[in-house]
């Protein structure tokens, strides 16, 4: 029976008038990969900052590894590892020095430090770069180094704030492998990401947060199932009339008009519902231009819950912000 390693109850955090986190409650079980999803500015990093004691816990109760972040900050810090959203590296220190520095400020004994360094450098495949300054590493190598650093102290929980932002597909796959490997060895992972495929592949459980509030929670499959059995994308000669027709049909739980046509969410098997829909639209002599059916993806779940409007900051900008000026 797994036990809760992170317990958050009614957490609130404000920056002046901005309520970044608004009465958030959730738990993370020991040994799982937990994903925190949400649009830009949803409050993910703020939550991580409170959980990792970087920000004070203004309101609510937060326990990490059994320790209260308010009264037992040191103990929390000792039992966790953090990979920040922004790049946090000394550009003029070498890869080896970066890990060495980290091990030392966490008071690791020398022998353990050296053993871990060798082990982790191998894990993230930076053996060739040991004596290279971090400014000469590629973006993916920097990220791998930061992940290795987060693991130096064998933390019970590793916080990864957008670990694969701006990386190429190969590097992302590699990093997923590391994350899975680390998790199999027993480290609980707290992950945020804007890549739904990443969350889908890695997570045991997902919470979606928006405007500081948790709006959906479950496993990837259960979230997809709550959305519907199947989805149909439809383009017709007269979307407005088709929309009216579709809405009135049973087994259609949601219809949305997008720039590309209509998006239908079905509560029953699409293979049986689709002919009925198409024939009723055909009867009204509305031309059908294209039709496509698929299972809901995590992307659909995300858009369904958080809407389509753009947020203050696009993922693209967030990536540029991460890079140095």
């Amino acid at each position: 029976m797994a036990s809760a390693i992170i317990e958050v109850t009614d957490l609130e955090h404000s920056f002046g008038d901005v309520k970044a986190v608004d009465k958030v409650s959730f738990t993370v079980e020991e040994g799982e990969i937990f994903s925190f999803l949400g649009p830009n500015g949803a409050g993910k990093s703020t939550t991580i900052n409170v959980l990792t004691t970087q920000l004070p816990c203004q309101k609510g109760i937060v326990r990490v590894c059994g320790f209260d972040v308010r009264t037992n900050r040191q103990a929390v810090k000792k039992s966790i590892g953090v990979v920040f959203q922004d790049e946090v590296l000394d550009r003029d220190m070498t890869v080896r020095e970066t890990l060495e520095f980290h091990g030392r400020i966490y008071s690791m004994p020398r022998s353990e430090r050296l053993a871990r360094e060798t082990e982790l450098i191998e894990l993230v495949e930076l053996e060739q770069k040991l004596n290279v300054r971090t400014k000469h590493l590629s973006g993916g190598m920097k990220r791998r180094l930061e992940i290795a650093r987060g693991l130096m102290t064998r933390p019970r929980v590793l916080f990864l704030d957008e670990p694969t932002i701006g990386l190429d597909p190969q590097t992302r796959l590699k990093i997923w492998d590391y994350i899975k490997g680390i998790n199999e060895e027993g480290t609980t992972i707290f992950l945020t990401t804007h890549y739904m495929d990443e969350a889908d592949t890695l997570s045991d459980r997902i919470e979606i947060i928006d405007y500081g509030k948790i709006i959906a929670t479950g496993t990837s499959d259960s979230l997809k199932n709550t959305l519907g059995e199947d989805m149909i994308y439809l383009q017709t000669g007269d979307d407005d009339r088709a929309l009216g027709l579709a809405e009135s049909m049973s087994d259609v739980t949601g219809v949305k008009k997008t720039s590309k046509g209509l998006e239908l969410i079905l509560s029953a098997d699409g293979g049986r519902v689709m002919p009925k829909i198409l024939s009723s639209i055909g009867k009204e002599s509305i031309e059908i231009l294209s039709v496509r059916m698929k299972k809901p993806s995590l992307d659909d779940v995300f858009v369904h819950y958080t809407g389509r409007e753009l947020r203050a900051e696009s993922a693209e900008n967030a990536f540029h912000r991460r890079r140095r000026h």
């Binding site: 970087q54 040191q74 810090k77 000792k78 946090v88 520095f101 400020i105 140095r324």
Partner: peptide, 20 residues
């Protein structure tokens, strides 16, 4: 520099007391 572009965050997140 460490605050804006460096490892101040890492140091402050560590259990090392900040007066160190």
């Amino acid at each position: 520099f460490d605050k804006n572009w460096g490892i101040m965050k890492e140091m402050l997140a560590s259990p090392m007391p900040s007066y160190h």
